[in-house]
Computed example of a mutant assay.
Amino acid sequence: MNTLIKLEILRTLRNKKFMFFSVLYPAMLYLVFTASVKGDETIGDSKLTFPVLYMVSMASFGALTSVLIGNAERIAKEREKGWVRQLRLTSLPGHGYVMSKMTSASVVSLPAIVAVFLVAAVSKGVRLDAWQWASLLGVIWAGSLVFAALGVAIGYTATGDAVRPLAMAVYFLLAALGGLWFPASQFPQWLRNIVEYVPTHAYAGLGQAIERGDAPGAKDLVILFFYLVLFAGVAAWMYRKDTHKS
């Protein structure tokens, strides 16, 4: 399994177009959306200024881009080309394949997170304590495993031609409802009651708590763990289902 993880990481790093989109795109969006915003105004009841709040949103968005879209498309194409069928002839167990995809995807998300942090610190003067930077990096990276598992599930749901529109639809829906583009505090109250249980909302909430100097909320942790188990379970079930078809 370790060999497959290394292979997956190297394959992704060699894809220059994907790396450009997943690493630089969120950082560029951060610059665009914070260009005309005053740095001393807090947003809603978050107690955070927009540059600080949006830093976590775009770092989470970058990680989501890396692990969801890329994972889903690679798996769908590998199924069509017979690569997955070849792997089943080896001693690699089904759960090993799913875990290798999740792990390799989450490792690649690190550059996207760091890029947003650097842009926020340099362009907007975002300053946090050392423990907050380290905690943010760890939490956003670990949380990306949830969406890496979702990417695996989507990759087994659709064919190579259909996987991109499906992955993009899920991707934009999660980003919008999770408040990654615009603060969820600006949503109508009825919508805020719903998005509290959306995984991307909980994902961003962990980072925002750390930015305020608080411990991550138990509710957000429980929600993310629930979705991790759900998505990983669906991915494993889809893998086994696809095995029976082969």
Rank of each mutant, 00 (worst) to 15 (best):
W83M: 10
E8W: 08
R127S: 14
V84D: 03
S144K: 02
R79M: 12
G82R: 06
A35T: 02
V114A: 12
L230C: 10
F226N: 02
I9E: 01
Y156P: 03
L145D: 02
L89G: 11
R88E: 09
L206K: 01
V195D: 02
A149H: 06
G143A: 07
K241D: 07
A72S: 15
G138V: 08
G217D: 12
A202H: 07
A232W: 11
A158E: 09
D129A: 13
L166Y: 09
K219M: 12
A148C: 07
T243D: 11
V234L: 14
K47N: 13
F187S: 07
V32Q: 00
K6M: 12
A27Q: 05
K38E: 14
R212Y: 06
T34V: 11
A120T: 01
D45K: 13
R74W: 05
L110D: 04
G62A: 06
G155D: 06
T49Y: 04
L177E: 02
L10M: 13
I75E: 01
M102P: 03
M168H: 02
S246P: 00
D220A: 14
G233T: 11
A202E: 06
A134T: 13
R164W: 09
F117D: 05
T42C: 00
R192F: 02
S60Q: 03
L128E: 08
N15Q: 09
V139S: 11
P188R: 09
L224Y: 05
T159R: 11
